[in-house]
Write a protein that binds this DNA or RNA. Structure first.
Lengths: 210, 210, 210, 210
DNA sequence: CATGAATGAGGTTTCATTCAT
DNA sequence: TATGAATGAAACCTCATTCAT
């Protein structure tokens, strides 16, 4: 992260050829491996390239700088989680509040626990890369999906669906992270599902009441 | 010729003389200034010492390494926020659930917004330093206080106060962070107070119901 | 934020391209120059790289750390002296004891005086780098050659050739070093040749007698 | 060994008072302890002072700089060994060559093995401090004693006793060091006594013959 | 396009030495 | 005299990035 920070984070060129796609993918995979195996501090461009089986030069053919790689990494992960949540939202249109909450909480927990290690490991890269923005974008995306879903609830209606969704989505992350940090044993996860559902349901009821 | 580096994060030497205390304090203050003004990446020990008006040598007289300083910084901040929350909890023993939630949410938001910039800026140091542990410790502390408070609620009783408190405390952080990230304008903060209170109240009611 | 340092003394990368070979060589030469001109204490990696006309980065591309360079330096020197002695031993197979002693003493003195300055200067690096091991290895090598040679002596036979050789080889170093330290004028060197030969011959006769 | 190297190596003041003597001694002892326990690289003035139970300031009251301490350390050790050898020489005036050699070799080996660890550990300090000079001085001292002894030999007479003594004294060190490095087990030491005696006797006979 | 040797600013940390108290 | 906080030059080493081949 030493020299210039000016360069944009967009990929330097669109991988038109098949080989390019493969290379980019190899680099991203290698980055994850290095991150998980050696930690963020040891995650150097050289090491990543080595692990990916390409030269550092090639690395810079596909990413303008290291930040861009980190951003891509975070982007990919976050947006996959978001996509899942989105799908879950669409699947329960028209259901009851409780049904809705149960569904998306489960989707979220499943997505997170499946790649719990990566999730934790990406914490630092996200922070470095200004992940807030990326996370924000995806949160909004999920927020929109949630808002849309809430509008269809069979047993309640809401006045400020946008704000509600934001709170809902961000509130759920903290407890999840905490439990992941505590070691994520199945029994604890199970209780977390109940509690997060209760958190969401309770909030929505309380918010709807006014 | 380098030397081995075991080095705990504990302070290298407890400041005995008056001069020492001043030095340590100057270093901590300078660290915060540098972090806020130049950002985490530029936060080098040299620069901190310079800003503090002491030599690098003095820095290392009191901190075994850079991590230790970061840890101290995070520790100080987090534990002050925790202390506030703790005091708020004790102040509303015996009140209603709604009263309790309103009080601690406000205390939390006040503590965070007062030093909003620092709060945001410490995010990355915390991540680097394994802040999870520090945050966990303080969360537990607040969690205990919250649990104790909940036991005295005049209008409800709870079966798993520990788990409830954990979820409560960690759930509140995300929305706060998100709003801080969005620029923390007063109007938004005001709405956040309502929503977080609703979140907590709703959760507690929902949890008590079973 | 430092990283752990395990780092063996083995070269970090084997120079493949022509350019690399030149770089490594330039570094080794520069190291010797700095050692001789400025002394061991002033022999920093920066200074060496500077003198070699390369960047510090290049230095660390080929040597994992400073110790490794020192080790390489000592290794090269010691093993060249050893090689010479070895060749001398093979050249006088079957001769008389006196002939043998004269030959290897001369070979040893020649090798040492030719690069007398380097020999003296490498004393400290060797000590720092645990040169004992390197020297030991090469001593053994010479010892073996000497032992083999002794077995072919036309006028004597020995019972413990290994032990004899060890003593012989190590005994010869001290007086040599002492004379080097005294300024190594030709007249003194000449007398040293006689005395060391006498030392060796006398020892062998005395040892054979039993 | 950082700053000025100009300052003399002589003690800054003669310890006139008893307390002073005790302090100097404590420092020297502490230095040895640190050297043996932590190694030369970790042997800092601060650590030595700490171990000695005095402040760094006091350290510099008694030694003008670190080199002076090292020099004193080496001096003390080497001169004690020399004194022993000297006494041994005087004790065998008028004896036969073989008797003489046996005696001084034993004296030397005894002195060295008694403090074998210290002997090895002082190797590096000696090199750093220009121990050559110190060792030279003591070697000369021993050389003189040996020369004087040789003059009284009952069964031989020598033409160049000074040169002979120098070679004798320095020749004996190498094998000793080698054996110490190999682990110094008693059986090996015993054989070393024989071999070194043979080395000396053989040399003297050979030298006397001409 | 790929390679990987080269770069060098800059980071962290040590430690001999001084001097105000 | 003793203390130990403070100093700061300088050492080692890393790693994102470039560019000649």
């Amino acid at each position: 992260m030493k020299r210039t920070q000016v360069a944009s984070l967009n990929p330097r060129k669109l991988p038109a050829q098949v080989r390019s796609v493969a290379t980019v993918d190899a680099i991203l995979q290698a980055a994850i491996q290095v991150l998980l195996a050696d930690g963020f501090e040891k995650m150097s461009t050289t090491r990543i390239a080595e692990r990916a089986g390409v030269s550092v030069g090639s690395f810079y053919q596909y990413f303008p700088n290291k930040r861009a790689l980190l951003a891509a990494l975070v982007q990919r992960h976050v947006s996959e989680v978001a996509a899942r949540a989105e799908r879950a939202c669409q699947a329960v249109q028209g259901a009851t509040i409780r049904e809705m909450c149960k569904t998306i909480v489960n989707a979220f927990i499943d997505a997170k626990t499946e790649r719990a290690d990566l999730s934790r490991a990406l914490y630092l890269p996200a922070a470095v890369v200004g992940g807030a923005a990326i996370v924000k974008a995806q949160s909004d995306r999920v927020g929109n999906a949630v808002a849309a879903m809430l509008q269809t609830a069979s047993d309640a209606s809401f006045e400020q669906p946008k704000l509600l969704s934001l709170v809902l989505v961000t509130a759920v992350v903290g407890p999840m992270q905490a439990v992941l940090e505590m070691g994520a044993n199945p029994e604890l996860i199970a209780r977390l599902r109940q509690q997060l559902t209760a958190l969401c349901v309770g909030y929505l009821i309380e918010a709807a009441r006014r």
